[in-house]
C-alpha cells in the first residue's frame, strides 16, 4: 500500500516536471532574446572549431601570438559559459514569473512556492551538466592528457553555476531588463581566472574570491594535468571551489527566498 502511494507521488512529480518543461520550452521559444541565448553553445562550438583557426591565420601575419596555444584555457571557459548561459535563461524565466506575479500564484498551488523555486534551481543544474558534457566530449575526445575522472567531477561542480546565476539574477533584479544589466556584470567577474593565468604574484590571490577562478583552474588541471595560479593541488582546488560556490549559493538562495 505504502509502495503504491509512493509510486503515485512519484508519478505526480514527474507529470509536474513534464508540465513545467513544456511550459519553459514555450516561454523560451516564444522570446527572441531567449532563443538567442539558447543558441550560445552552438555559436561557441562554431567559433572555436572554425573561428580560432581563422583568427590565428590572420594573427600569424603580424605576430607570433596564437590563440591555439591557449586552446585548453579557452575550453575551460566554454565549459563554464554553458552553465552560465543556462542559469541566465532560467534566471530570465524566473524574473518574468516574478514580474507577472506567477510566483505568488504558485504559493497557493499544491506545489507551493518553495517547490516551484526548487524546480527552477534544479533545472539549470541538470541541463548545464548535460550540455557541458556534450560540448566537452565534442572538443576533447581523443585528447591524451585529459583526466576523465577529474573532468567528470569538474562538470558536476561547474554545473552549480547554473543555479548560482539563476539565483543571482532572480534575487537581485526586479525584472528582465534589470536582469540583462546584471548579466553583463557576470562577464566582468569571469575574467578573474585570466588574471591568475597571466600573472604570478601574491595579489592574484584576490581572484580566488570569485568562484569562477577555482573552477577554471580545476578544469585546466583535468584537461592538461598542469596547474596555473597560486594553487597546485587538484583536491584543494576542488574543495575550495565547492566551498566558495556553496557560500554564494547559500547567500543568493536566502536572498531569493526573501525577495519572493
Amino acid at each position: 500500500m505504502k509502495k503504491g502511494a509512493d509510486v503515485q507521488t512519484g508519478r505526480v512529480h514527474i507529470k509536474q516536471v513534464e508540465l513545467f518543461l513544456k511550459g519553459d520550452a514555450k516561454n523560451v521559444l516564444r522570446d527572441p532574446l531567449m532563443v538567442l541565448v539558447l543558441g550560445i553553445p552552438i555559436y561557441l562550438f562554431i567559433l572555436v572549431k572554425f573561428g580560432i583557426p581563422f583568427v590565428d591565420i590572420q594573427l600569424s601575419k603580424y605576430t607570433y601570438f596564437q590563440l591555439m596555444d591557449h586552446f585548453d584555457l579557452i575550453i575551460c571557459f566554454i565549459v563554464l559559459i554553458v552553465p552560465m548561459m543556462i542559469g541566465m535563461l532560467t534566471g530570465f524565466l524566473l524574473l518574468d514569473e516574478k514580474d507577472d506575479g506567477i510566483i505568488n500564484y504558485m504559493a497557493i498551488t499544491p506545489m507551493k512556492k518553495l517547490g516551484f523555486i526548487g524546480y527552477r534551481v534544479t533545472l539549470p543544474l541538470i541541463i548545464s551538466f548535460i550540455i557541458s558534457t556534450v560540448l566537452v566530449l565534442l572538443f576533447l575526445i581523443g585528447e591524451e592528457s585529459v583526466n576523465w575522472g577529474l573532468l567528470l567531477i569538474v562538470l558536476v561542480v561547474v554545473s552549480l553555476f547554473g543555479p548560482l546565476i539563476t539565483m543571482y539574477l532572480a534575487s537581485l533584479c526586479e525584472n528582465k531588463v534589470e536582469g540583462i544589466s546584471y548579466a553583463k556584470l557576470i562577464s566582468i567577474f569571469s575574467v578573474a581566472p585570466i588574471v591568475t593565468y597571466m600573472f604570478e604574484s601574491w595579489w592574484t590571490g584576490f581572484a580566488y574570491i570569485i568562484p569562477v577562478t577555482w573552477v577554471v583552474e580545476l578544469s585546466y588541471t583535468s584537461i592538461t594535468g598542469e596547474y596555473f595560479g597560486l594553487i597546485d593541488n587538484w583536491a584543494i582546488l576542488y574543495l575550495g571551489g565547492v566551498t566558495n560556490i556553496s557560500i554564494f549559493l547559500y547567500f543568493f538562495y536566502q536572498k531569493l527566498r526573501k525577495s519572493l
Binding site: 509536474q16 508540465l19 511550459g23 514555450k26 506575479g101 506567477i102 499544491p110
Partner: peptide, 22 residues
C-alpha cells in the same frame, strides 16, 4: 488575486491547461 497573474506568452487555454496540471 486582484491582479491577474498569467504567463503572458501562453494563450488563454494554454494557461488554464498549465495551471490545471497541478
Amino acid at each position: 488575486f486582484e491582479t491577474p497573474n498569467f504567463y503572458q506568452k501562453f494563450t488563454a487555454l494554454e494557461n488554464l491547461e498549465f495551471f490545471a496540471g497541478f
